[in-house]
Nucleic acid binder design. Structure first.
Lengths: 246, 246
DNA sequence: TTGCTCCTCACGTCACGTGAGGTGGC
DNA sequence: TTGCTCCTCACGTCACGTGAGGTGGC
């Protein structure tokens, strides 16, 4: 049974990658061809093609080659999982792009009418552009995978329920803060417990993910600002949490 | 009249760029702040914010920093033009993403059903992913700008008309080729003239663009393959063209 | 035999990242 | 005075690009 084999050139032509890229992947042990011909030509198998697709998907998710290599070593990672991760990310990105489109159109309309465009409008636009790249840098593939798995466990309805509960909870917490309520007050304590619950529903209690989220909110305040979160509110919530545990 | 000024840190926070990136843009003369404070702090003006937005847009279009620098020096390039270029590109990319989504969903469905997925299906998917990056590497900003300008001159209806004329013309040309008609035959000559007309309608006769297109079709046969174009047909058309001019 | 594809070095590049060591404003 | 933000070098890094020089299959 002679299986189909592809040379580097064929593979490059059909995938849009460069020959040099395939050489590089071989060099670093990310994708080595199934065999070599007698003359030393790289001969790739169908299984190699599948693996290459996984690599391309994970590259689009923004992961460095080294992380992709170790990620693909995990026994619980199937080609299906990788495709699903890619799809989830793609849908998020398309949503951000629709947002960006709206903002650019607004700026174009203003400029075309020779109106003043505020610096803020430019800032918000650049912020969205940065968010598109940013999603790619905060999680490791493992964390992203865990997040997705968690979402699937919860089911779509539950995810939506959690997402809708947030704005309400944030508003309630802010009202207490601005009203000057003591973080140890029972009313605030109740909210703090709900807060903790929602965070856990999202992260599945994974410490790495919780940490990555914390880093993201601390170093990128604009991300939190989209949901009405700021440093002041975070500090207030933290004090309430401390009071819960003590 | 004290105008608003931003320090690097403020600008970085509001745009999602790193301080190092802004330093780098200053170093290479791409974006230098309007002034410096007495202590040497970079102070950016509102005009700098506008320029930064243009830079971010052109970066998303995939241009290297050096090309962006010279492009922004052109007197005929307004902020509005840059936003329009970005919008045009964004819409194309979203179309490709919808295509990619469909393909990934098909693969996911097959994998979930534990069905065999052909190598071809993986190839086509990777091809779309590569096309998304590729658009970014064939044109210089000047060429992209000329292409867009051309499209605006033609108007949407005309662009659509041209795009719809292609498949028909390609099919007709292929039929002649496969029928063994001499490239110098009057029937083929008529088609060749139409062919030339459509190419010119698209490129506006710009030699640089025509060259870039040629390079693209030669080095990326899959791009042409999507429209039923291959090396054989190109060679046939070329012979017909030579016959036209002689 | 010619032309094309393949091979292995190995240095170059682009756009920053990442400290190192030090100064100025609130 | 302490802490934070800023400054200028300057070397490091990631994912390849780009020849250089040479071999093998149709």
């Amino acid at each position: 049974v002679a299986e189909t084999r592809w040379t580097v050139g064929e593979l490059a032509r059909r995938t849009g990658l460069s020959v040099r890229t395939l050489h590089h992947y071989d060099e670093i042990g990310l994708l080595s061809p199934a065999r070599r011909s007698e003359a030393g030509y790289r001969l790739y198998s169908a299984a190699d093609v599948v693996r290459l697709q996984q690599i391309k998907s994970l590259r689009e998710l923004g992961f460095p080659l080294e992380e992709i290599r170790t990620f693909l070593q995990r026994p619980d990672i199937s080609p299906l999982r990788v495709v699903e991760l890619h799809l989830a990310r793609l849908r998020e990105e398309m949503a951000l792009q629709r947002d960006l489109c709206t903002r650019l159109e607004a700026i174009a309309a203003h400029l075309a009418a020779a109106e003043e465009v505020s610096a803020d409008e430019f800032f918000r636009t650049m912020e969205v552009m940065s968010m598109m790249d940013r999603v790619k840098t905060y999680y490791t593939p493992e964390q992203l995978e865990a997040l997705e798995q968690r979402r699937q466990q919860l089911g779509e309805d539950e995810v939506r329920r959690v997402e809708q509960a947030w704005p309400e909870l944030i508003a309630a917490m802010r009202a207490e803060m601005e009203g000057g309520t003591d973080p140890a007050d029972p009313r605030v304590q109740t909210l703090a417990v709900q807060w903790k619950g929602l965070v856990e529903a999202f992260t599945g209690g994974d410490e790495g993910i919780t940490g990555a989220l914390g880093t993201m909110y601390r170093t990128e305040p604009e991300v939190g600002a989209r949901f009405g979160l700021d440093g002041e509110l975070f500090a207030y919530v933290e004090r309430a949490m401390d009071a819960v545990s003590s």
